[in-house]
Design a protein around this nucleic acid. Structure first.
Length: 476
RNA sequence: GGCCCUAUCGUCUAACGGUUAGGACAUCGCCUUUUCAAGGCGGUAAUCAGAGUUCGAUUCUCUGUAGGGUCACCA
């Protein structure tokens, strides 16, 4: 491995600016980042904007914002520059032209004489014959000088079966059918991904290419180009696909893959997202599952990346986010809950009832919208028959409630806290046949709801005065 | 159709020839101060199928099956 020979590890994330980023892209970026950082190497952000048709305005900013949110910081990139600037492919056209000329000189590139219609006809014929379409079957005998108005094709030097090694998948191979004369430079002057990424990785000294497994099929084409250029390819690190939640289809934008920043909007923690994505397709082998970003950098290892696809699992993400919330200092948790509470409910006293009921910050909003906190702000209207506990007569319940009122009145205003309320109420409840016959009516009288936090915490939040008023109302 | 990749509980995964096949999420049950949540404890649940190699296969080989990728002037 290059890292053992002292060669500096250089990885890159090279998205095309065609819209938002989803978890698939983010995980590719994350693995590249973790591997570079683990070796004090360099992580590059490069924008592959060679398809002007598909480009979406604002994507680059969006991509950078997404990575920044997650703390995936790049050492070289479009905004901060670096020794190989520019990091935007459309600004590097001269470089591709230079290498295109080299290929032409070597006799490994030629202008494509066909029109789109002719090409489509070839393709259709191959399709009808149930054969793979191979351009090289139609390669012209002789070709003229490339003047830039036609597409420039790569003339595959040798048609053969390729065998190569992948850091994740091991030994891979493909038949000759995988080799073809692909386009290096399009007729609009922009290079294709197939050509540009190889030139860029070469120039930027990239040592490891993290990529999705859809590129396995075109690897022989790349290898053939490396051969023509007489350069050694970087280590290929093929990542397993991320599958849509509940299915076995690869997660993609058409399948409802979400913008990674939507998770931010929903109140997921970046560390939780990083942790979750790191473990989706890789794992360190132990039984520990909660890791900080720094821990991940230390233990990440490409040799333990998974071969097969992994389903995106929202429930596990939520669980993991909750675990990461628990890691936060208490003040931090309170600050966030308060921030997510609507203006009319920003009361620090509510935090104890909220804190265990959320797995992400937006759950605070959901709780509010469901009216779960309303009972703390207005005296509830309720069905008095529900005060009853099991089949006990109303007289017995009233009697219990009176005892509760009496005991609560004994608590001094200044000592009206959770612990004292609990002690007082429990001391009475213990004397009864069942604790429920006191606790249930009290809880219901205070909350007016079938489901609510326990009576002690409700009372402590309501305060002595309001607690007594509600209990009085129940027996009146 | 050609070429290629993949295959352990529902899901994410551990086990790099010998384990009662382990953990986590989810699920189910019980417990804890009534309900809900949280928490604790416990349960159900998997090696795709068939051959072969081997004293012994989840693990190695082959075949089949299933799923996926790819065959663009997209990346």
């Amino acid at each position: 491995m290059p890292d053992k020979t002292g060669e500096k590890i250089v990885t890159r994330f090279a998205p095309s600016p065609t819209g938002f980023m989803h978890v698939g892209g983010v995980r590719t970026a994350l693995y590249a980042y973790l591997w570079a950082k683990k070796h004090q190497g360099t992580f590059i952000l490069r924008i592959e904007d060679t398809d002007k048709e598909r480009e979406v305005e604002g994507s680059i900013g969006h991509i950078m914002e997404s990575l920044k949110w997650l703390g995936i910081d790049w050492d070289q990139g479009p905004d901060i520059g670096g020794p190989y600037a520019s990091y935007i492919q459309s600004e590097r056209l001269d470089l591709y032209k230079k290498y295109a000329d080299i290929l032409i000189q070597k006799g490994f590139a030629y202008p494509d004489p066909y029109t789109k219609e002719e090409l489509d006809a070839f393709r259709q014929k191959a399709d009808e014959e149930r054969k793979p379409f191979l351009y090289r079957n139609h390669r012209p005998e002789t070709f003229g000088v490339w003047d830039g108005t036609k597409a420039l094709r790569f003339k595959t030097p040798e048609i053969k079966s390729y065998h190569w090694s992948d850091a994740v998948r091991g030994e891979l191979s493909a038949g000759e059918e995988a080799l073809d004369d692909f386009i290096l430079i399009k007729s609009d002057g922009y290079p294709t991904y197939n050509f540009a990424h190889i030139i860029d990785d070469l120039q930027m000294n990239v040592t490891h290419i993290m990529r999705a497994d859809e590129f396995i099929a075109s690897t022989p084409k790349f290898l053939s180009l490396y051969d023509a250029l007489e350069i050694k390819p970087p280590v290929l690190v093929t990542l397993p696909p991320i599958l849509a939640d509940g299915g076995n289809k690869k997660l993609g934008k058409r399948d409802g893959a979400k913008d990674i920043l939507d998770y931010k909007k929903e109140g997921y923690l970046p560390d939780a997202m990083v942790n979750f994505l790191a473990l989706l397709g890789w794992n360190p082998g132990g039984e520990k599952e909660i890791f900080t970003k720094e821990e991940l950098i230390n233990i990440f290892d490409i040799s333990r990346i998974q071969n097969s696809g992994a389903q995106m699992n929202l429930e596990k993400l939520e669980w993991m986010n909750k675990e990461h919330i628990k890691l936060l200092p208490h003040e931090e948790i309170e600050k966030n809950i308060l921030a997510w509470l609507p203006e009319d409910k920003k009361d620090p006293k509510l935090i104890p009832v909220i804190i265990d009921r959320i797995s992400k910050w937006s759950d605070v909003t959901i709780m509010c919208e469901a009216g779960e906190l309303d009972l703390f702000f207005k005296t509830p209207e309720y069905d008095k028959t529900k005060l009853l506990f099991k089949a006990l007569p109303i007289e017995r319940i009233t009697e219990n409630l009176k005892k509760a009122i009496a005991s609560i009145e004994e608590i001094p205003e200044n000592d009206f806290n959770l612990e004292n309320i609990k002690n007082k109420l429990m001391s009475i409840a213990e004397t009864l046949e069942s604790r429920g016959e006191l606790l249930h009516p009290v809880r219901y009288a205070l909350s007016g709801q079938d489901k609510s936090p326990d009576p002690f915490i409700i009372a402590s939040i309501l305060g002595k005065n309001e607690t007594l008023q509600r209990l009085q109302k129940a027996i009146s």
